[in-house]
Design a protein around this nucleic acid. Structure first.
Length: 814
DNA sequence: GCCAACGTTGGC
DNA sequence: GCCAACGTTGGC
């Protein structure tokens, strides 16, 4: 956060280098920039780029506003607009609920800033570069400053790493990202984490924190500390607060709470200023250090934050936040999952209605902080009295391999409530007012909202590995993407609460949420505070109530993946326009479906029955994403949990329910996770093996291992070897499976259980070429793609010496 | 009404 | 500091 005093507003887009001797031209010369343009060389230099925020104001500029300068009530609107540009938001941006004209840390949602606002021309990096500083206006990291750059080409840069990649070849070793300047002699270390490594006594979290105040005067933190006497002398422990909401009192003293977090007090970005004496609910002695406790709402001076300089906490609330929730506490009526962010959250937000109510009257508080409510509560089954057991940590998948099977466990999670509680745990029943608990209000805390799309419990949420192939993964910089979508891997989207359009694609859908197919996940929600709010609020595409309030009560939304869709999806790709099926080929398919021998996996045949998408094979990422349909369709819908019945009933009226169950898929996946693991092992073996040229192995849902010939120059273009969990395999060419009587199958084992066997098969395939089929009868009359016809019993693969298989040749002779 | 784009915030 | 990704919104 730039704490420099704001000087005279400078003209719009007049960035400058503050550093002496660091003229943009010279620096760019150092940076290797060859441009000679000096579009702003004549402009006066700014003291700090932050000042340029004023540039976005209309003419007749208001006087510069200090970042921490309290604003008058009349400034609210202005602040709102400025909030989009960060720093101003730190000021008391029109807080109706907090009457203090000081920093408001829990602002209502602000207006979105214009993408063009606040960008400072930044010739230091070269002509056309722009820079923008944004100070986080809310959230637990409020006050933190982010610096962005945008290149002349429009590349958005959000970190030094990205900047380095954009300015490839430019020496940025002396470039200080935050300030945006080149520092002669190099960039000094930006962070000192001495204190972070200091071991803090565990005796009393609050006390330990205040002990620090008297030491380490040579550390940055020493400049930002509160008066010791203001420490919480009688800080209520968190368990006490928590249990105040329960109907049962347990001997919490016997529970050994985790040690206090080591670091809680971090310096303000501008650590060069002396801090004023603290003042709680008193006069503000220094604007820049007067904070509003995000928990209790009192003002205080100092720089106390919760861990990692998140929300500001007054000493009392900070100390109170250091304790942990007793792990044995369980809800009644609505049972917390014990795994989600709400359950795992141990810190009261302090600003929600429940917290405020409790702070006003701690003894009477009976409601849990909204931020700590389970965001995916499971309703207690009638009379069961069962509680959600803690899921063993060893069940949390750490690998993508595990993730591949997550869908199959969805139903398990739905049945959590029916399971007996963990006998090793003692659960305390906590009565919660259902209605209140499920409701929302203006004080709904921000961090909960941000986390509402993850239940934290399903396998998708627990998966830590990106598939690397879906479109969202492909968008990620780490996978070479442009970081435009910025969405979580589709396979990691929460099965309960993710938006539908974020879930894995379904059968040819570009976006699952765009169709009224019955899909898992939440309908898309629409915000209500912006344009067209009246239209967006209330009804989604299917007519259901999709208000944002569903955040609260739609946690129990039906969760069912349709097996048919997913199984069909697994191979609903790959066919190019030039590979249209002829009617004869359809006949061929019928033959296959009806007469497939056991050795040939069935799935491919079925998949061939689905409507094939005309997807471009050139778009490999997209193709792969489509292949990665969820596995969850393998679950038996009959096992739907009672908890979801109501939601299902609601949707039944609106959405078509696909009742057909794909039985073959069920039988196929009966092999379970072990089979998947085996396939994964084979995949890994293949990827560590030298494969015949341009054959590539992937794992798709099913599960199914596919080895694809990627080269269009190959004689085996569009040939795929499909291996099912039982290691049975099938060869398809242009989506058509070889007849089980094809001689190829006689030359190789019925099961491909090793990379060697697979490679041998591929080498054997290389001896074949694709049957050319029958040319069109009237080729001269055709202007579009040439579509070959084949006999229904076409061999598809023929020896290189033979261009047309005997069956097609026989058909040709008819 | 949909969604690509991206501002923004959380987490490590 | 950096990355992940949530949630919003302007364009279509």
């Amino acid at each position: 956060m730039n704490m420099e005093p704001v000087g005279t507003p400078v003209p719009v887009a007049e960035p400058q280098g503050k550093d002496v001797g660091s003229s943009p031209e010279r620096i760019m010369s150092e940076a290797g920039n060859t441009t000679d343009k000096k579009p702003h060389s004549s402009d006066p230099l700014k003291e700090t780029p932050v000042q340029d925020k004023e540039e976005d104001k209309p003419a007749g500029l208001e006087p510069p506003v200090d970042w921490f300068e309290p604003l008058e009530e009349d400034d609210n609107d202005e602040v709102e607009s400025l909030a989009g540009e960060s720093e101003m938001s730190v000021s008391g941006a029109g807080s109706e609920k907090n009457h203090l004209k000081v920093h408001k840390f829990q602002q209502p949602r602000r207006k979105r800033s214009s993408p063009e606002e606040g960008w400072d021309v930044w010739p230091i990096l070269g002509d056309g570069w722009k820079r923008k500083e944004v100070i986080r206006r809310s959230g637990s990291s409020i006050g933190q400053k982010d610096v962005y750059y945008i290149s002349p080409k429009g590349d958005r840069v959000r970190s030094r790493v990205e900047l380095t990649s954009v300015l490839e070849g430019v020496d940025l070793s002396t470039f200080e990202y935050k300030s945006g300047r080149f520092i002669p002699g190099g960039v000094p270390p930006t962070r000192v984490r001495i204190r972070a490594k200091r071991k803090i006594p565990e005796s009393s979290s609050s006390e330990s924190s205040f002990v620090e105040r008297g030491e380490g005067t040579d550390t940055p933190d020493s400049l930002h500390r509160l008066t010791p006497n203001l420490g919480p002398k009688t800080v209520p422990s968190q368990p006490t607060v928590w249990l105040a909401q329960s109907t049962v009192v347990i001997p919490t003293q016997q529970y050994e709470y985790p040690p206090a977090e080591k670091e809680i007090k971090l310096p303000l970005p501008s650590s060069s200023r002396a801090l004023p004496l603290p003042s709680i609910n008193g006069d503000i002695s220094s604007e820049e250090n007067t904070l509003v406790c995000s928990r209790c709402g009192i003002s205080f001076t100092g720089t106390w934050y919760d861990k990692q300089r998140k929300r500001p906490f007054c000493p009392t609330c900070w100390a109170a936040s250091k304790t942990k929730v007793h792990p044995m506490v369980r809800f009644r009526k609505w049972i917390p999952c014990g795994q989600c962010v709400g359950c795992l959250n141990t810190v009261n937000c302090g600003h929600c209605a429940n917290c405020k109510n409790g702070l006003q009257s701690p003894e009477s508080r009976k409601r849990l902080c909204r931020g700590r409510k389970c965001i995916c509560p499971i309703r207690k089954s009638p009379g069961s009295g069962g509680f959600v057991p803690q899921q063993p940590y060893n069940e949390i998948p750490d690998t993508f391999e595990d993730c591949l099977s997550f869908q199959s466990e969805v139903t398990d999670s739905q049945h959590l409530s029916l399971k007996s509680s963990d006998t090793e745990n003692f659960s305390i029943n906590v009565d919660i007012d259902d209605d209140d608990d499920m409701s929302t209000d203006d004080d709904d805390d921000w961090h909960k909202k941000r986390k509402r799309r993850s239940c934290g419990d399903c396998k998708a949420c627990q998966c830590r590995i990106d598939c690397g192939t879906c479109d969202f993964c492909a968008d990620k910089p780490k996978f070479g993407g442009s970081n435009k979508k910025r969405q979580k891997c589709r396979l990691r989207q929460c099965q309960r609460q993710a938006m539908r359009h974020l879930l894995p694609y379904q059968r040819g859908q570009k976006d699952p949420g765009s169709e009224n197919l019955w899909l898992p996940g939440r309908p898309r929600t629409y915000n209500t505070y912006s344009r067209k709010s009246g239209l967006k609020k209330g009804k989604g595409p299917s007519g259901l109530d999709f208000t944002d309030n569903e955040d609260e009560d739609s946690n129990l939304q039906a969760m069912n993946w349709n097996p048919e869709m997913t199984s069909a999806d697994s191979l609903s790709y790959e066919l190019n326009v030039r590979n249209h099926q002829s009617s004869m080929q359809s006949n061929h398919l019928d033959f296959e479906l009806n007469g497939l021998p056991d050795r040939v996996p069935h799935t491919s045949s079925d998949n061939n029955n689905s409507e094939l998408d005309q997807l471009s094979r050139l778009d490999a990422e997209k193709l792969h994403a489509d292949r990665h349909g969820p596995k969850c369709g393998e679950e038996d819908d009959d096992e739907d949990d009672d908890y979801y019945e109501e939601e299902e009933e609601e949707e039944e009226d609106e959405l078509p329910i696909i009742t057909q169950i794909f039985s073959m898929a069920d039988s196929q996946v009966s092999s379970g996770v072990d089979s998947e693991n085996q396939l994964m092992k084979l995949l890994q073996a293949l990827r560590s093996t030298v494969m015949p040229i341009l054959w590539y192995a992937i794992l798709v849902n099913g599960p199914q291992l596919q080895i694809i010939q990627c080269s269009k120059q190959s004689n085996l273009t569009d040939a795929i070897v499909l291996i099912d969990p039982g290691f049975c395999y099938q060869v398809t060419v242009q989506k058509q499976p070889l007849l089980p009587t094809h001689p190829l199958y006689d030359k190789y084992p019925a099961h491909l259980t090793s990379a060697t066997e697979v490679v041998n098969l591929l080498l054997g395939l290389e001896e074949y070429v694709v049957c050319q089929g029958l040319p069109p009868k009237d080729p001269l009359l055709r202007t579009g793609p040439i579509i070959l016809e084949r006999a229904s019993t076409c061999d598809f693969l023929v020896k290189k010496k033979v261009s047309i298989c005997s069956n097609c040749r026989a058909l040709q002779g008819l």
